[in-house]
């Protein structure tokens, strides 16, 4: 069975490690915060200027001066720190964030990612996505395997304007997990979701990939 959104987030949470500083993108990646393993210290960064993001506020705690990068109201926790946008992106660009979990429209077998613009449709902007993929040590994409037309989002080459080139390390979809091997060596299928077969992944994936020895 393909993974649900929550199961995708749950799988992505396995990418977290104790002590990590992590930036979560909008959509499914945001849900990863719900699955941080008990006893693990993970600090969430919000690129509008905060480290140590707390949960959504109760109604009587809402503070207009305290929002996340999705412009949602949030709360602080005892270890929170605030800083300017320049400091925030110095942190990101400088390689100090351990992991970024992002959504994508397309990912290619060379690690290219497209997630900000569809030509001919209204472009809202890239926000911080280009800085995150260029600067964060490890970029993991979490997305549906196919778009709403049933076409593979894991491609030989991206067709949409790129957010970054050769930056993605791992792709987690509702069907499976691919590792992007370094230096353009292509994709390796390393996991199947429960009940998903190699044949189903093969039928629904445009990109070329090798299959990890344990799966073949």
């Amino acid at each position: 069975m393909p993974r649900t959104r929550d199961q995708l987030a749950q799988r992505a949470a396995q990418e977290l490690q104790d002590g990590f500083y992590v930036n979560l993108g909008i959509g499914i990646p945001t849900l990863v915060a719900n699955y941080i393993p008990e006893g693990m210290t993970v600090t969430l960064q919000s690129e509008n200027g905060m480290l140590g993001m707390g949960p959504f506020p109760y109604d009587d705690q809402v503070d207009p001066d305290l929002i996340n990068a999705g412009k949602q109201t949030i709360t602080e926790i005892p270890e929170s720190a605030y800083f300017s946008s320049a400091d925030s992106f110095a942190m990101i660009r400088g390689g100090h964030i351990n992991l970024s979990i992002l959504g994508a429209m397309e990912v290619a077998e060379n690690g290219d990612i497209a997630n900000w613009m569809i030509p001919g449709k209204l472009v809202k902007g890239m926000g911080g996505a280009m800085d995150l993929v260029a600067g964060v040590k490890r970029v993991v994409v979490v997305m549906e395997h196919a778009n709403k037309h049933g076409q593979s989002k894991v491609l030989k080459r991206c067709t949409l304007p790129l957010t970054g080139t050769g930056v993605v390390s791992r792709i987690i979809t509702d069907l499976c997990v691919f590792d992007v091997k370094p230096d353009g060596a292509g994709l390796e299928l390393i996991e199947l979701a429960d009940g998903v077969t190699l044949e189903e992944v093969a039928a629904k994936t445009e990109a070329a990939y090798t299959v990890a020895s344990g799966l073949a």
Partner: peptide
């Protein structure tokens, strides 16, 4: 359009 971090910098 500027990437957010590029704009800040």
């Amino acid at each position: 359009f500027n990437p957010q971090g590029t704009l800040a910098e």
